[in-house]
Simulated assay, not measured.
Amino acid sequence: MSLLRFSLLSLLLALPGWVSAQLPALDIEYSVSRNNLNLGGTHRKLLQTGSDEYVMRAKTKAEGFAAIFVSDIVRETSHFRLVDGQIQPLHYRYHKNGKDPETFEVDYDRQAQVLRHSLLDKTLTLQDNDQDLISFQFAMMLDLQQSVRKLEYRIADKKRIENYSLIPRGEKVFDTNIGKLHTVVMEYYDQKRNRTYTFWCAKELDYLPYQTRRLDSDGDTIELKLRRYNGKSL
């Protein structure tokens, strides 16, 4: 189901408060839709586990009519640390239950300086721009706060470890229940799969993605839109 696959791509969530030495607790929900049809939602929560270490837990499931056909639940966990203003992923885990369960993990061994993927028969040397499917958006927010507008990350997903380059595509203003959100539009074009990923990052929320979209070559779209932010409905 596209809802669950899109969660894997993790085009969601990021986190305010980068200028602080510590990151605040965060509780956020996004709606997930395909071709303007609501499929479900994803809930993400951030907790601090040490002086500079954090864990983000995400849960994605179908809602409403879609829940009749899809009972699977996707859970993701990203452990990372904030060091000198930089996000360093430590461990990522993806698990989908149901008839066709899927699980994979990515370990970022800082001591050995290697990246290990549970499904890929390879071990790679760590790079400064390595991120997991959740932490890369943290890194994106931090870079945008520092006025970096061309973003380069190496991201590990279920099947591959690839380089991603995001470039600015202007700005857009959204009217919400918490006021106007002025967003910077960032875009990545996946040439191999002929897909375009777009992020609308809100300045008022420290460049938290207010909305994200995947556009496929056949015109199929999958979108996430922020609906709750720390208890506030948008």
Rank of each mutant, 00 (worst) to 15 (best):
Y153V: 00
L133D: 02
E76W: 00
S71G: 13
L3I: 15
A25C: 01
K59M: 04
T196G: 10
L151G: 06
E105I: 13
S147I: 02
M186Q: 12
I167Y: 06
K122N: 10
N97C: 08
D121E: 14
T196I: 12
E29N: 08
T60S: 14
G231C: 12
S33N: 06
L151C: 11
S217P: 01
H95I: 08
L26A: 04
Y94D: 04
N163K: 12
T60Q: 10
N163Y: 03
F138Y: 15
L90W: 04
L23A: 04
R57S: 06
L234S: 10
L47H: 10
S217A: 15
L11V: 13
N230E: 09
D107L: 15
E105T: 15
G85E: 08
N129T: 04
Y188K: 02
F65C: 00
Y108M: 05
Q111Y: 06
G170P: 08
E76Q: 13
K45N: 03
G41F: 06
D84F: 04
L8W: 04
L224I: 01
Y94N: 09
Y108T: 06
L144M: 12
R154C: 02
D84Q: 11
I178Q: 14
L46W: 03
Q131I: 00
L23T: 03
A25R: 09
S78P: 04
P89S: 05
L234R: 10
E162Y: 01
L12K: 02
L82M: 06
T125P: 11
Q191T: 14
E204I: 07
V173G: 06
G17H: 09
F136L: 00
G98Q: 14
R160S: 15
E105P: 06
D218Q: 09
T42C: 05
K180E: 12
R195L: 08
L39P: 00
H43N: 05
I68M: 11
H79T: 02
T60V: 09
G50K: 07
F80I: 04
Q88C: 04
T212P: 09
L11A: 10
R93I: 06
L39E: 02
Q86P: 00
Y164T: 00
L26V: 07
K203W: 01
L8M: 14
E53P: 00
L166Y: 15
I28Q: 11
P24K: 05
G40Y: 05
I87N: 01
L215I: 09
V185P: 10
I68E: 05
H91E: 08
E63F: 04
K225C: 01
F104I: 09
R34F: 06
D72V: 01
Y30L: 14
D132E: 02
P101Y: 10
L13T: 15
D72I: 03
G179F: 10
Y210G: 01
G17P: 07
M140Q: 13
H95C: 09
G64R: 00
R154S: 07
D206M: 02
S7Y: 13
D157W: 06
A62E: 11
N36L: 11
G64V: 07
G40L: 04
G41L: 07
V32P: 01
W200N: 08
T221L: 09
R228W: 04
S118Y: 14
K203S: 10
N230D: 14
D84L: 05
L39K: 04
V185N: 11
Y207N: 10
